[in-house]
Design a protein around this nucleic acid. Structure first.
Lengths: 227, 227
DNA sequence: AATTTCACCGATAGTACTATCGGTGAAAAT
DNA sequence: ATTTTCACCGATAGTACTATCGGTGAAATT
Protein backbone atom coordinates (compact mmCIF):
# COMPACT_ATOMS: atom_id res chain seq x y z
CA UNK A 1 0.00 0.00 0.00
CA UNK A 2 1.12 3.50 -0.79
CA UNK A 3 1.86 5.49 2.32
CA UNK A 4 0.55 9.04 2.25
CA UNK A 5 2.95 11.80 3.21
CA UNK A 6 0.36 14.34 4.26
CA UNK A 7 1.07 18.02 4.15
CA UNK A 8 0.43 19.91 7.33
CA UNK A 9 -2.78 21.62 6.18
CA UNK A 10 -4.08 18.33 4.76
CA UNK A 11 -3.49 16.63 8.09
CA UNK A 12 -5.23 19.42 9.97
CA UNK A 13 -8.22 19.35 7.68
CA UNK A 14 -8.47 15.60 8.09
CA UNK A 15 -8.43 15.93 11.86
CA UNK A 16 -11.10 18.62 11.65
CA UNK A 17 -13.30 16.34 9.59
CA UNK A 18 -12.73 13.51 12.08
CA UNK A 19 -13.89 15.84 14.85
CA UNK A 20 -17.05 16.80 12.95
CA UNK A 21 -17.83 13.19 12.14
CA UNK A 22 -17.23 12.14 15.74
CA UNK A 23 -19.41 14.96 17.04
CA UNK A 24 -22.26 14.02 14.73
CA UNK A 25 -22.10 10.40 15.87
CA UNK A 26 -22.01 11.31 19.56
CA UNK A 27 -24.79 13.85 19.08
CA UNK A 28 -26.97 11.16 17.52
CA UNK A 29 -26.09 8.44 20.00
CA UNK A 30 -25.98 10.38 23.25
CA UNK A 31 -27.71 13.68 22.56
CA UNK A 32 -26.49 17.20 23.05
CA UNK A 33 -26.04 16.62 26.78
CA UNK A 34 -23.49 13.89 26.07
CA UNK A 35 -21.49 16.01 23.66
CA UNK A 36 -18.30 17.06 25.46
CA UNK A 37 -14.88 18.14 24.25
CA UNK A 38 -13.43 15.13 26.05
CA UNK A 39 -15.53 12.61 24.13
CA UNK A 40 -15.29 14.31 20.75
CA UNK A 41 -11.52 14.66 20.99
CA UNK A 42 -11.01 11.09 22.15
CA UNK A 43 -13.29 9.74 19.41
CA UNK A 44 -11.25 11.73 16.87
CA UNK A 45 -8.01 10.43 18.36
CA UNK A 46 -6.53 13.68 19.70
CA UNK A 47 -6.05 15.25 23.13
CA UNK A 48 -8.93 17.17 24.68
CA UNK A 49 -6.97 20.39 24.63
CA UNK A 50 -6.30 20.05 20.92
CA UNK A 51 -10.01 20.41 20.31
CA UNK A 52 -9.47 24.16 20.63
CA UNK A 53 -7.01 24.20 17.76
CA UNK A 54 -9.96 23.55 15.46
CA UNK A 55 -12.91 25.19 17.18
CA UNK A 56 -13.25 28.17 19.47
CA UNK A 57 -15.53 26.18 21.75
CA UNK A 58 -18.40 23.66 21.59
CA UNK A 59 -20.80 26.35 20.38
CA UNK A 60 -18.53 26.90 17.42
CA UNK A 61 -18.55 23.22 16.52
CA UNK A 62 -22.34 23.08 16.83
CA UNK A 63 -22.61 26.12 14.56
CA UNK A 64 -20.54 24.31 11.93
CA UNK A 65 -22.69 21.20 12.37
CA UNK A 66 -25.84 23.27 11.82
CA UNK A 67 -24.38 24.82 8.65
CA UNK A 68 -23.42 21.37 7.40
CA UNK A 69 -26.95 20.16 8.13
CA UNK A 70 -28.44 23.15 6.37
CA UNK A 71 -26.40 22.36 3.30
CA UNK A 72 -27.68 18.77 3.11
CA UNK A 73 -31.17 20.02 3.85
CA UNK A 74 -31.24 22.55 1.00
CA UNK A 75 -29.93 19.84 -1.28
CA UNK A 76 -32.74 17.42 -0.45
CA UNK A 77 -35.31 20.20 -0.76
CA UNK A 78 -34.04 21.04 -4.23
CA UNK A 79 -34.24 17.37 -5.11
CA UNK A 80 -37.84 17.12 -3.91
CA UNK A 81 -38.82 20.28 -5.79
CA UNK A 82 -37.22 19.00 -8.98
CA UNK A 83 -39.08 15.70 -8.69
CA UNK A 84 -42.36 17.51 -8.09
CA UNK A 85 -41.70 19.54 -11.23
CA UNK A 86 -41.17 16.39 -13.27
CA UNK A 87 -44.59 15.10 -12.22
CA UNK A 88 -46.36 18.34 -12.93
CA UNK A 89 -49.89 19.25 -12.04
CA UNK A 90 -51.27 16.17 -10.46
CA UNK A 91 -49.96 15.93 -6.96
CA UNK A 92 -52.58 13.44 -5.96
CA UNK A 93 -51.62 10.51 -8.07
CA UNK A 94 -47.92 10.36 -7.43
CA UNK A 95 -46.74 8.60 -4.35
CA UNK A 96 -43.20 9.41 -5.49
CA UNK A 97 -43.74 12.98 -4.36
CA UNK A 98 -43.88 11.60 -0.86
CA UNK A 99 -41.37 8.81 -1.31
CA UNK A 100 -38.61 11.31 -1.97
CA UNK A 101 -38.71 13.14 1.36
CA UNK A 102 -39.21 9.82 3.16
CA UNK A 103 -36.10 8.43 1.53
CA UNK A 104 -34.17 11.61 2.16
CA UNK A 105 -34.93 11.31 5.86
CA UNK A 106 -33.98 7.64 5.97
CA UNK A 107 -30.69 8.40 4.24
CA UNK A 108 -29.63 10.73 7.07
CA UNK A 109 -31.94 9.93 9.96
CA UNK A 110 -29.61 11.52 12.48
CA UNK A 111 -30.31 14.95 10.99
CA UNK A 112 -34.04 14.63 11.61
CA UNK A 113 -33.53 13.17 15.08
CA UNK A 114 -31.19 15.99 16.06
CA UNK A 115 -33.55 18.56 14.59
CA UNK A 116 -36.65 17.20 16.33
CA UNK A 117 -34.78 17.07 19.60
CA UNK A 118 -33.43 20.62 19.36
CA UNK A 119 -36.73 22.01 18.09
CA UNK A 120 -38.35 22.11 21.52
CA UNK A 121 -35.30 22.31 23.73
CA UNK A 122 -34.74 25.84 25.03
CA UNK A 123 -31.21 24.97 26.14
CA UNK A 124 -30.14 23.63 22.76
CA UNK A 125 -27.62 25.61 20.76
CA UNK A 126 -29.21 24.16 17.64
CA UNK A 127 -32.66 25.44 18.43
CA UNK A 128 -32.45 28.35 16.04
CA UNK A 129 -31.32 26.02 13.28
CA UNK A 130 -34.13 23.57 14.05
CA UNK A 131 -36.78 26.28 14.09
CA UNK A 132 -35.57 27.76 10.81
CA UNK A 133 -35.43 24.32 9.25
CA UNK A 134 -38.99 23.52 10.29
CA UNK A 135 -40.22 26.88 8.98
CA UNK A 136 -38.37 26.37 5.70
CA UNK A 137 -39.94 22.95 5.19
CA UNK A 138 -43.38 24.28 6.03
CA UNK A 139 -43.19 27.26 3.71
CA UNK A 140 -41.54 25.22 0.98
CA UNK A 141 -44.42 22.78 1.06
CA UNK A 142 -47.05 25.53 1.28
CA UNK A 143 -45.49 27.28 -1.72
CA UNK A 144 -45.62 24.01 -3.65
CA UNK A 145 -49.32 23.72 -2.92
CA UNK A 146 -49.88 27.32 -3.98
CA UNK A 147 -47.95 26.67 -7.20
CA UNK A 148 -50.31 23.78 -7.88
CA UNK A 149 -53.08 26.32 -8.14
CA UNK A 150 -54.65 26.12 -4.74
CA UNK A 151 -55.86 29.44 -3.51
CA UNK A 152 -53.66 31.55 -1.30
CA UNK A 153 -55.24 34.91 -1.94
CA UNK A 154 -56.19 36.17 1.48
CA UNK A 155 -54.62 35.66 4.86
CA UNK A 156 -57.05 32.91 5.76
CA UNK A 157 -56.27 30.80 2.71
CA UNK A 158 -52.57 31.25 3.09
CA UNK A 159 -52.79 30.13 6.70
CA UNK A 160 -54.78 27.10 5.65
CA UNK A 161 -52.10 26.17 3.18
CA UNK A 162 -49.47 26.46 5.88
CA UNK A 163 -51.44 24.33 8.31
CA UNK A 164 -51.85 21.60 5.73
CA UNK A 165 -48.17 21.76 4.86
CA UNK A 166 -47.30 21.67 8.56
CA UNK A 167 -49.54 18.67 9.18
CA UNK A 168 -48.29 16.70 6.19
CA UNK A 169 -44.67 17.42 7.09
CA UNK A 170 -45.26 16.25 10.65
CA UNK A 171 -46.93 13.09 9.37
CA UNK A 172 -44.03 12.52 6.97
CA UNK A 173 -41.55 12.76 9.82
CA UNK A 174 -43.63 10.46 12.02
CA UNK A 175 -43.90 7.79 9.34
CA UNK A 176 -40.23 8.02 8.46
CA UNK A 177 -39.33 7.54 12.11
CA UNK A 178 -41.76 4.64 12.36
CA UNK A 179 -40.01 3.10 9.37
CA UNK A 180 -36.61 3.58 11.00
CA UNK A 181 -37.94 2.01 14.19
CA UNK A 182 -39.03 -1.01 12.20
CA UNK A 183 -42.77 -0.50 12.64
CA UNK A 184 -43.49 0.33 9.00
CA UNK A 185 -41.20 -1.83 6.87
CA UNK A 186 -42.51 -0.64 3.50
CA UNK A 187 -41.88 2.97 2.51
CA UNK A 188 -44.39 2.67 -0.33
CA UNK A 189 -47.15 1.97 2.16
CA UNK A 190 -46.10 5.05 4.10
CA UNK A 191 -46.13 7.13 0.91
CA UNK A 192 -49.63 5.88 0.15
CA UNK A 193 -50.85 7.04 3.55
CA UNK A 194 -49.37 10.47 2.93
CA UNK A 195 -51.03 10.63 -0.48
CA UNK A 196 -54.35 9.77 1.17
CA UNK A 197 -53.93 12.41 3.87
CA UNK A 198 -53.08 14.99 1.21
CA UNK A 199 -56.13 14.07 -0.80
CA UNK A 200 -58.37 14.91 2.09
CA UNK A 201 -56.67 18.24 2.64
CA UNK A 202 -56.76 19.21 -1.04
CA UNK A 203 -60.45 18.37 -1.25
CA UNK A 204 -60.95 20.81 1.60
CA UNK A 205 -59.17 23.53 -0.34
CA UNK A 206 -61.29 23.00 -3.43
CA UNK A 207 -64.64 22.99 -1.70
CA UNK A 208 -63.51 25.65 0.75
CA UNK A 209 -62.79 28.05 -2.12
CA UNK A 210 -66.47 27.82 -2.92
CA UNK A 211 -66.09 28.76 -6.55
CA UNK A 212 -65.75 25.59 -8.60
CA UNK A 213 -65.82 21.94 -7.65
CA UNK A 214 -63.65 20.06 -10.08
CA UNK A 215 -59.87 19.83 -9.80
CA UNK A 216 -58.44 23.14 -10.86
CA UNK A 217 -55.88 22.92 -13.67
CA UNK A 218 -52.84 24.59 -12.17
CA UNK A 219 -50.18 26.62 -13.88
CA UNK A 220 -47.49 23.99 -14.24
CA UNK A 221 -44.45 26.19 -13.79
CA UNK A 222 -43.56 27.23 -10.29
CA UNK A 223 -43.07 30.94 -10.07
CA UNK A 224 -40.09 31.58 -7.83
CA UNK A 225 -37.51 28.80 -7.66
CA UNK A 226 -34.92 30.99 -5.98
CA UNK A 227 -31.81 29.34 -4.54
CA UNK B 1 -56.99 36.00 57.01
CA UNK B 2 -56.76 32.77 58.93
CA UNK B 3 -53.17 31.77 59.56
CA UNK B 4 -52.44 28.11 58.91
CA UNK B 5 -50.59 26.16 61.61
CA UNK B 6 -49.26 23.41 59.39
CA UNK B 7 -48.50 20.01 60.75
CA UNK B 8 -45.07 18.63 59.96
CA UNK B 9 -46.25 16.14 57.32
CA UNK B 10 -48.43 18.81 55.70
CA UNK B 11 -45.48 21.17 55.49
CA UNK B 12 -43.29 18.45 53.99
CA UNK B 13 -45.88 17.55 51.41
CA UNK B 14 -46.27 21.19 50.48
CA UNK B 15 -42.52 21.54 49.99
CA UNK B 16 -42.51 18.40 47.87
CA UNK B 17 -45.22 19.82 45.67
CA UNK B 18 -43.31 23.08 45.38
CA UNK B 19 -40.28 21.09 44.21
CA UNK B 20 -42.30 19.23 41.61
CA UNK B 21 -43.92 22.41 40.35
CA UNK B 22 -40.55 24.16 40.19
CA UNK B 23 -38.98 21.23 38.36
CA UNK B 24 -41.76 21.20 35.77
CA UNK B 25 -41.34 24.92 35.15
CA UNK B 26 -37.55 24.69 34.82
CA UNK B 27 -37.86 21.61 32.61
CA UNK B 28 -40.17 23.51 30.30
CA UNK B 29 -38.17 26.74 30.30
CA UNK B 30 -34.62 25.43 30.23
CA UNK B 31 -34.84 21.80 29.20
CA UNK B 32 -33.54 18.70 30.90
CA UNK B 33 -29.99 20.00 30.69
CA UNK B 34 -30.88 23.01 32.80
CA UNK B 35 -32.59 20.95 35.47
CA UNK B 36 -30.26 20.87 38.50
CA UNK B 37 -30.80 20.29 42.18
CA UNK B 38 -29.48 23.80 42.82
CA UNK B 39 -32.08 25.49 40.63
CA UNK B 40 -35.01 23.32 41.68
CA UNK B 41 -34.26 23.76 45.38
CA UNK B 42 -33.77 27.51 45.08
CA UNK B 43 -36.99 27.89 43.06
CA UNK B 44 -38.82 25.93 45.75
CA UNK B 45 -37.23 28.07 48.47
CA UNK B 46 -35.13 25.46 50.26
CA UNK B 47 -31.42 24.63 50.48
CA UNK B 48 -29.87 22.50 47.75
CA UNK B 49 -29.03 19.74 50.21
CA UNK B 50 -32.65 19.56 51.38
CA UNK B 51 -33.60 18.38 47.91
CA UNK B 52 -32.47 14.92 49.02
CA UNK B 53 -34.97 14.86 51.86
CA UNK B 54 -37.69 14.52 49.24
CA UNK B 55 -36.03 12.65 46.38
CA UNK B 56 -33.24 10.10 46.19
CA UNK B 57 -31.70 11.99 43.28
CA UNK B 58 -32.72 13.84 40.11
CA UNK B 59 -33.63 10.55 38.39
CA UNK B 60 -36.12 9.95 41.18
CA UNK B 61 -37.74 13.34 40.67
CA UNK B 62 -37.93 12.79 36.91
CA UNK B 63 -39.57 9.41 37.52
CA UNK B 64 -42.22 11.10 39.64
CA UNK B 65 -42.70 13.77 36.96
CA UNK B 66 -43.21 11.07 34.34
CA UNK B 67 -45.79 9.31 36.52
CA UNK B 68 -47.57 12.60 37.10
CA UNK B 69 -47.54 13.26 33.35
CA UNK B 70 -48.87 9.77 32.67
CA UNK B 71 -51.75 10.41 35.03
CA UNK B 72 -52.81 13.61 33.24
CA UNK B 73 -52.31 11.88 29.92
CA UNK B 74 -54.58 8.96 30.72
CA UNK B 75 -57.14 11.44 31.94
CA UNK B 76 -57.19 13.40 28.68
CA UNK B 77 -57.28 10.16 26.68
CA UNK B 78 -60.33 9.02 28.61
CA UNK B 79 -61.92 12.40 27.98
CA UNK B 80 -61.29 12.16 24.24
CA UNK B 81 -62.63 8.63 24.11
CA UNK B 82 -65.77 9.63 25.98
CA UNK B 83 -66.37 12.53 23.58
CA UNK B 84 -65.88 10.23 20.61
CA UNK B 85 -68.44 7.87 22.10
CA UNK B 86 -70.96 10.68 22.44
CA UNK B 87 -70.65 11.47 18.74
CA UNK B 88 -70.92 7.86 17.66
CA UNK B 89 -70.38 6.49 14.22
CA UNK B 90 -69.61 9.50 12.18
CA UNK B 91 -66.06 10.56 12.82
CA UNK B 92 -65.96 12.70 9.72
CA UNK B 93 -68.47 15.35 10.58
CA UNK B 94 -67.34 16.27 14.03
CA UNK B 95 -64.51 18.68 14.34
CA UNK B 96 -64.98 18.39 18.09
CA UNK B 97 -63.26 15.00 17.96
CA UNK B 98 -60.13 16.90 17.02
CA UNK B 99 -60.76 19.98 19.08
CA UNK B 100 -60.57 17.98 22.28
CA UNK B 101 -56.99 16.73 21.93
CA UNK B 102 -55.94 20.15 20.59
CA UNK B 103 -57.38 21.82 23.66
CA UNK B 104 -55.90 19.20 25.96
CA UNK B 105 -52.47 19.95 24.56
CA UNK B 106 -52.93 23.70 24.87
CA UNK B 107 -54.03 23.31 28.46
CA UNK B 108 -50.72 21.72 29.40
CA UNK B 109 -48.34 22.51 26.55
CA UNK B 110 -45.28 21.83 28.67
CA UNK B 111 -46.18 18.14 28.79
CA UNK B 112 -46.12 17.85 25.00
CA UNK B 113 -42.96 19.91 24.69
CA UNK B 114 -41.16 17.80 27.27
CA UNK B 115 -42.40 14.63 25.63
CA UNK B 116 -41.38 15.64 22.11
CA UNK B 117 -37.96 16.64 23.38
CA UNK B 118 -37.35 13.45 25.31
CA UNK B 119 -38.76 11.25 22.56
CA UNK B 120 -35.61 11.40 20.42
CA UNK B 121 -33.02 12.16 23.07
CA UNK B 122 -31.00 9.06 23.99
CA UNK B 123 -29.63 10.77 27.09
CA UNK B 124 -33.04 11.71 28.47
CA UNK B 125 -34.30 9.97 31.57
CA UNK B 126 -37.80 10.54 30.29
CA UNK B 127 -37.23 8.77 27.00
CA UNK B 128 -38.98 5.60 28.08
CA UNK B 129 -41.96 7.62 29.24
CA UNK B 130 -42.05 9.58 25.97
CA UNK B 131 -41.85 6.45 23.84
CA UNK B 132 -44.59 4.71 25.81
CA UNK B 133 -46.75 7.81 25.63
CA UNK B 134 -46.36 8.07 21.86
CA UNK B 135 -47.16 4.39 21.44
CA UNK B 136 -50.19 4.69 23.69
CA UNK B 137 -51.57 7.62 21.68
CA UNK B 138 -50.95 5.80 18.43
CA UNK B 139 -52.62 2.60 19.49
CA UNK B 140 -55.44 4.44 21.20
CA UNK B 141 -56.22 6.27 18.00
CA UNK B 142 -55.84 3.15 15.87
CA UNK B 143 -58.20 1.27 18.16
CA UNK B 144 -60.73 4.08 17.84
CA UNK B 145 -60.57 3.79 14.07
CA UNK B 146 -60.99 0.03 14.28
CA UNK B 147 -63.98 0.50 16.59
CA UNK B 148 -65.51 2.75 13.98
CA UNK B 149 -65.65 -0.28 11.75
CA UNK B 150 -62.61 0.18 9.59
CA UNK B 151 -60.93 -3.06 8.73
CA UNK B 152 -58.08 -4.33 10.84
CA UNK B 153 -58.28 -7.99 9.95
CA UNK B 154 -54.85 -8.85 8.65
CA UNK B 155 -51.43 -7.50 9.55
CA UNK B 156 -51.41 -5.15 6.59
CA UNK B 157 -54.68 -3.46 7.50
CA UNK B 158 -53.70 -3.13 11.13
CA UNK B 159 -50.44 -1.50 10.14
CA UNK B 160 -52.30 0.87 7.87
CA UNK B 161 -54.53 1.90 10.75
CA UNK B 162 -51.48 2.53 12.89
CA UNK B 163 -49.79 4.62 10.23
CA UNK B 164 -52.89 6.76 9.81
CA UNK B 165 -53.20 7.18 13.57
CA UNK B 166 -49.51 8.02 13.77
CA UNK B 167 -49.78 10.60 11.01
CA UNK B 168 -52.89 12.26 12.40
CA UNK B 169 -51.39 12.39 15.88
CA UNK B 170 -48.23 14.00 14.53
CA UNK B 171 -50.30 16.53 12.59
CA UNK B 172 -52.36 17.24 15.71
CA UNK B 173 -49.21 17.94 17.70
CA UNK B 174 -47.78 20.13 14.95
CA UNK B 175 -50.94 22.23 14.68
CA UNK B 176 -51.26 22.57 18.45
CA UNK B 177 -47.68 23.81 18.63
CA UNK B 178 -48.31 26.18 15.74
CA UNK B 179 -51.27 27.52 17.69
CA UNK B 180 -49.14 27.96 20.81
CA UNK B 181 -46.49 29.74 18.74
CA UNK B 182 -49.16 32.13 17.51
CA UNK B 183 -49.13 31.02 13.90
CA UNK B 184 -52.61 29.47 13.93
CA UNK B 185 -54.80 31.65 16.16
CA UNK B 186 -58.02 29.72 15.64
CA UNK B 187 -58.22 26.17 17.01
CA UNK B 188 -61.37 25.53 14.98
CA UNK B 189 -59.44 26.08 11.78
CA UNK B 190 -56.84 23.61 12.97
CA UNK B 191 -59.54 21.07 13.82
CA UNK B 192 -60.99 21.51 10.33
CA UNK B 193 -57.62 20.71 8.77
CA UNK B 194 -57.37 17.55 10.87
CA UNK B 195 -60.88 16.52 9.85
CA UNK B 196 -59.88 17.01 6.21
CA UNK B 197 -56.69 14.97 6.61
CA UNK B 198 -58.68 12.19 8.28
CA UNK B 199 -61.24 12.18 5.50
CA UNK B 200 -58.56 11.41 2.97
CA UNK B 201 -57.17 8.60 5.07
CA UNK B 202 -60.58 7.06 5.76
CA UNK B 203 -61.43 7.14 2.07
CA UNK B 204 -58.27 5.13 1.51
CA UNK B 205 -59.43 2.53 4.01
CA UNK B 206 -62.83 2.16 2.40
CA UNK B 207 -61.62 1.81 -1.13
CA UNK B 208 -58.61 -0.19 -0.01
CA UNK B 209 -60.82 -2.79 1.66
CA UNK B 210 -62.19 -3.49 -1.80
CA UNK B 211 -65.45 -4.94 -0.54
CA UNK B 212 -68.04 -2.20 -0.32
CA UNK B 213 -67.87 1.47 -1.15
CA UNK B 214 -70.27 3.31 1.10
CA UNK B 215 -69.47 4.31 4.66
CA UNK B 216 -69.67 1.20 6.78
CA UNK B 217 -72.09 1.46 9.71
CA UNK B 218 -69.91 0.67 12.67
CA UNK B 219 -70.80 -1.08 15.88
CA UNK B 220 -71.40 1.91 18.12
CA UNK B 221 -70.01 0.47 21.34
CA UNK B 222 -66.26 0.31 21.70
CA UNK B 223 -65.18 -3.20 22.63
CA UNK B 224 -62.54 -2.92 25.31
CA UNK B 225 -62.53 0.25 27.40
CA UNK B 226 -60.13 -1.21 29.92
CA UNK B 227 -58.45 1.06 32.51
C1' DA C 1 -41.92 18.10 81.30
C1' DA C 2 -38.68 15.25 79.08
C1' DT C 3 -37.47 12.90 75.06
C1' DT C 4 -37.50 11.72 70.31
C1' DT C 5 -38.16 12.70 65.57
C1' DC C 6 -37.09 14.94 61.44
C1' DA C 7 -37.30 18.76 57.84
C1' DC C 8 -34.09 21.82 56.97
C1' DC C 9 -29.57 24.10 57.13
C1' DG C 10 -24.39 25.20 55.90
C1' DA C 11 -20.16 23.11 54.79
C1' DT C 12 -17.64 20.29 51.96
C1' DA C 13 -15.51 16.24 49.47
C1' DG C 14 -15.97 14.28 45.07
C1' DT C 15 -16.82 14.33 40.04
C1' DA C 16 -17.01 16.03 35.32
C1' DC C 17 -16.11 19.37 32.04
C1' DT C 18 -13.98 23.75 30.11
C1' DA C 19 -10.39 26.40 28.51
C1' DT C 20 -5.65 28.05 28.92
C1' DC C 21 -0.76 27.31 29.54
C1' DG C 22 4.09 26.28 28.10
C1' DG C 23 6.58 22.60 25.79
C1' DT C 24 7.77 19.57 21.62
C1' DG C 25 8.87 17.96 17.15
C1' DA C 26 8.17 17.91 12.48
C1' DA C 27 6.79 20.51 8.46
C1' DA C 28 7.42 24.82 6.05
C1' DA C 29 9.73 28.96 4.99
C1' DT C 30 13.94 31.43 4.82
C1' DA D 1 21.36 24.98 7.05
C1' DT D 2 18.83 27.80 9.92
C1' DT D 3 14.77 29.71 11.51
C1' DT D 4 9.93 29.93 11.95
C1' DT D 5 5.45 28.03 12.23
C1' DC D 6 2.03 25.33 14.28
C1' DA D 7 -0.68 20.97 15.27
C1' DC D 8 -0.56 18.50 19.02
C1' DC D 9 0.59 17.20 23.82
C1' DG D 10 0.21 16.98 29.21
C1' DA D 11 -0.78 19.65 33.16
C1' DT D 12 -3.79 22.41 35.58
C1' DA D 13 -6.76 26.30 37.31
C1' DG D 14 -11.47 27.39 37.21
C1' DT D 15 -16.42 26.31 37.19
C1' DA D 16 -20.72 23.84 38.03
C1' DC D 17 -23.11 20.24 39.98
C1' DT D 18 -23.87 16.08 43.09
C1' DA D 19 -24.48 13.93 47.29
C1' DT D 20 -23.17 13.32 52.13
C1' DC D 21 -22.17 15.09 56.69
C1' DG D 22 -23.18 16.79 61.44
C1' DG D 23 -25.86 20.43 63.58
C1' DT D 24 -30.35 22.88 64.86
C1' DG D 25 -34.90 23.90 66.35
C1' DA D 26 -39.55 23.03 66.34
C1' DA D 27 -43.10 19.56 66.08
C1' DA D 28 -44.52 15.12 67.77
C1' DT D 29 -44.41 11.60 71.15
C1' DT D 30 -43.80 9.84 75.67
Amino acid sequence: MTSTPLSRSEAKDLTRRRLIRAALAILDEEGEAGLTTVKVARAAGIAQSSFYVHFKDMQDLLRVLAEEGGRRLRHSMREARRAAREAPGDLERHRDTFRIPLEAICRHPELLRIQLRARHDPSSSLRGFATETAAAYREHHATDLAALGYTADDEHDRRRLEMIADGINAATNALAIGHLEGRYPDLDEAADILVALSRGALRLLRSGAGRDEGPRPPEPADPAPRD
